[in-house]
Amino acid sequence: MRHATTLRIGPVGFRVGSDWRAPIAALNDLYRDYPQPDDGIPDFNVHLFAARPWRRVLRPSVHIGGDFVIPDAAPLPLVQGLLAAEMGMNLQMALGQRRYLLLHASAVERDGRALLMTGMSGAGKSTLAALLMAAGWRLMGDEFALLDPVTGLIHGFPRLISLKNEAIGVIERALPRARFGPRLEGTPKGTIRHLVPDARAISVMAEPAAPRLILFPSYGFAAAERAVLPSETFVRLTQASTNYVALAERGFGALTGLVRRVPARALDYPDTATVLEQVERMWSAG
């Protein structure tokens, strides 16, 4: 492909090739402090390509390809090329990751222990992770947490934090000096703006952490908390994993180990100030 870049996010190396310069330039800017793939060899390839040569210039629309693809994925306009690149990398993880049990969860770390947050889209995983990063936690990732079946440790995947709609203003106010990507209007998920994780999240992103607490947040409710039984946690996390079935018995062993060792709580929250206080209190209670 005409334009390409390589980078590593957590333990995973990517090569992103593109028919256009702009998406690669955006990646090179926002991921400028990220390391290269181990030994220079990427785990996954992403291709951003024009379906026909003339569509590179005429109403350019970006198709997402790579080692693993969804056949009928809709293309994005070139102005959303950065989003296409991010979606392409997520897709490789969701469809191709086999080394770790992939949990659709955000994760932060303190004192070497990881807090996992998972839930439906819109529950506030990314927003919560960004707020906790602003409050001094180490961000491990806003989208995927990687559970190592061998060690039981969580490996981070601190890609750019994907902020959507109302969350954008909330985090711009919480982190006024942070680096942000361009505002992408009219995407399939509304307005999106990417936030670059802070320097610590990037510099120690290869360090795993032992999971200590699992939260199932729900935004838009009166503050409430309840314990979640291991069996319910197991079911919810199988639903939050794209490769549980593919990992077969390694996935079963990893996930049963996690839910037996690590307590889980459901957390309803009405606003960001309240949720930070709730999380700190639950973390202290251990």
Binding site: L229, S231, V235, V245, F252, G253, T256
Partner: peptide
């Protein structure tokens, strides 16, 4: 089989099919 009792429920992994039974 691999049988893991949790709380009220028990997980049974069936190796031949790769299916987890709750």
């Amino acid at each position: 089989l691999r049988v893991v009792p949790l709380d009220a429920l028990t997980l049974v992994y069936h190796r031949a099919s790769g299916i987890t039974h709750i």
